[in-house]
C-alpha cells in the first residue's frame, strides 16, 4: 500500500506542505477560500528547524501499535479499516490531550475543524488525505512538494531506491563520499553550515 514517505535531506524548508495541508482540510479547498474560513483550517504537517536551521517536515507516522490510540480512553482514535491510517472520531474526542502526551512525534494538535461539531475543539492530525485519496488524488503535502522531500509510494520502492543510492555512492567513491544531490543545494547547505558554525563559537 502506498504511503507518504519523508526524505528529510531534500527538504528546503519552504513550508508549502503546511499551507497545502491546511487548504486540503478546509471546506473551500482553495488557499484564498481557506484563509476566509472560520474556523481557520489547521495544518496537520509541521515544518521544524533542525540543528542548522534546515527544514524537517514532521507528520504523523501512523504508528502500529499507535501510542495515541492506546492512550485514548474515550476510544476516539481508531485505525481506518483497510488502511494503515490512524483517525480521530471528532464526536467521541473530549479534547483531553492524552493522545498528544502519548505521541512521540508531537504531531497531534487541537483546533476546531469544519468536520467537527461547531465550536468544539478536537484533536486534529494527519488523515493521509483520505478524502483526496478517495478521489484518486495523492495527499496534498506530497502534491505540493516540488523537491520530492515527500513522496507517495510503496515503501518497498522507496527502500529499494535508497539501497541503490547507497550502493552507488560506495561504488562511485571508495572513500564512501555520498553522491552529490545538487550543486546548488550543496553550496547553499555549505554556506549555511559555515554561517551556523560561527554561532557555535
Amino acid at each position: 500500500m502506498k504511503q507518504v514517505i519523508v526524505h528529510p535531506e531534500r527538504c528546503v524548508g519552504c513550508m508549502q506542505c503546511m499551507t497545502a495541508c491546511a487548504t486540503a482540510h478546509s471546506t473551500a479547498k482553495t488557499l484564498i477560500g481557506a484563509l476566509l474560513e472560520e474556523p481557520r483550517p489547521a495544518p496537520r504537517i509541521h515544518v521544524g528547524a533542525g540543528l542548522e536551521d534546515e527544514g524537517f517536515p514532521n507528520r504523523c507516522r501512523h504508528c502500529d501499535p499507535a501510542p495515541c490510540q492506546l492512550g485514548c480512553l474515550p476510544g476516539a482514535i481508531y485505525r481506518a479499516k483497510g488502511s494503515n491510517t490512524v483517525m480521530v472520531d471528532y464526536d467521541l474526542c473530549i479534547n483531553c490531550a492524552s493522545c498528544a502526551m502519548a505521541c512521540p512525534y508531537g504531531v497531534i494538535r487541537f483546533a476546531q475543524d469544519p468536520k467537527a461539531p461547531p465550536g468544539k475543539t478536537v484533536a486534529v492530525k494527519c488523515d493521509n488525505c483520505v478524502d483526496r485519496q478517495a478521489q484518486g488524488k495523492v495527499p496534498a503535502c506530497v502534491e505540493t512538494c516540488f523537491v520530492n522531500a515527500l513522496t507517495f509510494e510503496e515503501p518497498t520502492a522507496a527502500m529499494k531506491r535508497r539501497t541503490s543510492e547507497v550502493a552507488a555512492s560506495i561504488s562511485l567513491d571508495m572513500a564512501a563520499q555520498r553522491v552529490p544531490l545538487s550543486a546548488t543545494w550543496d553550496l547553499q547547505t555549505e554556506m549555511k553550515r559555515r554561517q551556523k558554525a560561527l554561532d557555535q563559537r
Binding site: 527538504c11 524548508g13 519552504c14 513550508m15 528547524a49 536551521d53 523537491v147 547553499q188
Partner: peptide, 12 residues
C-alpha cells in the same frame, strides 16, 4: 522564520 524557504534562499 526558521527554516527559511530554500527556493527563496537560492533565488529559485
Amino acid at each position: 522564520q526558521q527554516p527559511s524557504c530554500g527556493f527563496c534562499e537560492t533565488g529559485l
